[in-house]
Amino acid sequence: MAPWDLAAELGDIVAWAIYLLIGFAFGFILESAGFADARLLAAQFYWREIRVIQVMFTAILVAMVLIFWSSALGWLDYDDVWVNPTYIWPGIVGGLIMGVGFVFAGFCPGTSLVGVATLKVDAIWFVAGAAVGIISFGETVSFYNDFWHSGFLGRFTLQDWLGLPTGAVVLGLVVMSLLILWIGDIVRRRIYGDSDED
């Protein structure tokens, strides 16, 4: 049953090739969606554009439904799927810092890579900055290791937290995502009209 340990099953080289292909498709989709253009990404924060919200929530919705559907059918072992462990406080503070950084930069790490791949000079500066930030973190985290591990809840899912059946949570999130997409589009139209940006 899925998922598999690709390197153990197929050998390192085939596993690397699969990861390379996955990354290739990821980069291709991000660039095709326009995510190498920081102006378009930043426009989310001003409601001129909601493409990022549309792509992101659609993707989460599709992946989530397929993951839980296939595990309900017994094809995928959800217990074997990596669920990002929850660390409440560093997650919140890190998220806030990234949100601020997003408005300064108009990129996040993934989108900046397709920016670099299409020779956007601003993306190259972003990656240089991100390198400084990443190295700084490695050098400073030992000063506040306790905080970096604070609020640890391990593999903690929404269905654990809410005490609801997984199906109900998935259904709730589908409805919520559709509402976000629908309301987001209404708000954008209200503020900026249908066809024009200026």
């Binding site: 997650g91 990234m98 930069a105 972003f126 991100a130 400084v132 930030g133 700084s136 970096w148």
Partner: peptide
Amino acid sequence: VMAFIGGVLMGYGARLARGCTS
């Protein structure tokens, strides 16, 4: 300059939060 500053924040924040937007 702004992309660089944002990059520093994003790089640091992503490590703090153990992951980025992806």
